[in-house]
């Protein structure tokens, strides 16, 4: 037992914080997809909703998970009465490819 340890004893709380952060990052990955989808859905809807009126019921969000890439598919129905939407653009597709 080193006498100096008595004087420079560090708090244990930083260790607790680091252990928790590592553990929870791992545990959350197990339930990640559904949470991520929910967050993405809310944020994308909010962004689109600022420009056009959308019906939250007519929105479809889906994640296809692959080995190297996953595909996030967002389908939002936009009523034809809205301006700035091309005639063929009744449905808007947005595909994002996260690495």
């Amino acid at each position: 037992m080193n006498l100096f340890n008595l004087f420079k004893r560090r708090g244990s709380a930083p260790v607790a914080r680091d252990r928790l952060q590592i553990l929870l990052a791992y545990e959350r990955s197990g339930r990640g997809p559904s949470d991520l989808l929910f967050v993405l859905r809310e944020e994308i809807l909010a962004a689109v909703g600022r420009h056009v009126e959308i019906n939250p019921e007519r929105v479809h969000v889906q994640m296809d998970r692959g080995d190297k890439v996953s595909i996030l598919e967002v389908e939002i129905e936009v009523p034809n009465t809205v301006r700035a939407v091309p005639a063929s653009g009744r449905k808007k597709h947005a595909k994002l490819r996260p690495a």
Partner: peptide, 15 residues
Amino acid sequence: ASRGEMLTIEDVLEI
């Protein structure tokens, strides 16, 4: 918490 013996409020909120 101030002595580093307990998680701080900030720690818990961040986690």
